[in-house]
């Protein structure tokens, strides 16, 4: 059963379609959520919640678009909501997005498996020190391949957030994107 068939069955009330989608994407979705919430149980809760939301909103899903990016964007958005509510609005005193990007850059060219494994641990550790929105920015850019403009929208919408608190994320996002341009 491919994604289209599963979604069609789900739209027609057959939760066997949902089972197929859950089986296919749950691991990837939990990994994406974990990168934002940094808690395995919480990541599973987020993905479980997202699949149930999709089940309830499946009539709105446009079958002409791919399911996987839709799911993963929804997961990251939900994970950001949860992380912010869990961790609250506050300022990160430790996080350094440039450091995350540095580890990523090193990991992309490392030859040794042991060194690669260490770098991955450092990436996770560095991510955990960022504020939720900064983490989400990294995941949106490098995991979901969202454009800068899409990221700006995703980080600012829904509307009405306290603008000043986003400044840190924006500045670091700007730094991140600037470095990426330099790398290209």
């Amino acid at each position: 059963m491919d994604d289209l068939q599963a979604i069609q069955r789900l739209k027609n009330g057959d939760i066997g379609g949902l089972e197929a989608l859950v089986t296919r994407y749950q691991s990837k979705a939990v990994r994406a959520a974990f990168l934002v919430v940094h808690d395995e149980s919480l990541a599973e809760d987020v993905v479980q919640d997202t699949f149930i939301r999709i089940y309830r909103r499946i009539q709105h899903f446009d079958s002409s678009q791919s399911f996987e990016p839709y799911l993963l964007r929804s997961v990251v958005n939900a994970a950001l909501n949860v992380a912010q509510r869990a961790e609250g609005r506050h300022l990160s005193l430790e996080g350094d997005l440039a450091q995350v990007e540095g580890w990523l850059s090193q990991a992309s060219s490392v030859g040794s498996e042991i060194e690669y494994r260490e770098l991955k641990q450092q990436i996770i550790a560095a991510l955990s020190k960022l504020e939720p929105r900064q983490r989400a920015a990294v995941i949106q850019r490098y995991y979901l391949n969202m454009s800068e403009k899409e990221m700006a929208v995703a980080l600012e919408a829904p509307p009405g957030t306290v603008k000043w608190i986003l400044n840190a994320a924006r500045a670091k996002l700007r730094s991140l994107l600037g470095s990426e341009r330099s790398a290209k």
């Binding site: 691991s27 990837k28 939990v30 990994r31 994406a32 974990f34 990168l35 395995e40 990541a43 990523l104 990991a107 992309s108 494994r117 770098l119 991955k120 641990q121 990436i123 996770i124 990294v138 995941i139 490098y142 995991y143 391949n145």
Partner: peptide
């Protein structure tokens, strides 16, 4: 980068 992040998350689960 995506693969690195995916693998890093997988290692942590």
């Amino acid at each position: 980068y995506r693969d690195i992040l995916d693998s890093a998350a997988g290692d942590s689960l």
